[in-house]
């Protein structure tokens, strides 16, 4: 259960950061937090108490008590996607700083209305 709380805690904190913090780097950290929380949540969905990793690394393992492999596969994908987003966000942050000389999103409001 604590995993769920942790996961959603991370997501909520991430969302809070996105809503309140104005610095772009902090917002990117917020996005990362959301993604981490999501990954944690997905993993904990597949978790089984006293379960083992779904790898038949030695003979005699009982497949019945293995944890669910599908969320793990999903997390693998989700991690890659979050890495991609993160990379894009950082590149954009570099360019944004180059153009505006600031990363304060409260001040960068040329595009409006």
């Amino acid at each position: 259960m604590v995993y769920y709380i942790g996961a959603f805690g991370l997501i909520i904190i991430g969302l809070y950061v996105l809503m309140v913090k104005r610095n772009l780097i902090k917002m990117i950290i917020g996005i990362s937090l959301i993604n981490t929380g999501l990954n944690l949540f997905l993993i904990s969905v597949g978790f089984i108490k006293l379960g083992t990793a779904p790898i038949f690394s030695k003979p005699g393992l009982n497949p019945k008590i293995m944890v669910d492999p599908l969320p793990q596969a999903m997390v693998l994908t989700a991690i890659v996607i979050s890495v991609a987003t993160l990379a894009m966000a950082l590149a954009l942050a570099i360019r944004l700083y180059e153009h505006h000389g600031t990363l304060d999103m409260g001040k960068i409001k040329d595009q409006k209305w």
Binding site: I34, T85, H99, Q111
Partner: peptide, 20 residues
Amino acid sequence: DKRSIESSVKYLIQGSVGSG
């Protein structure tokens, strides 16, 4: 240019929330 980077950043932030 200035405007496209700004738009892209904003799009990315909202898009990430969406994908989350």
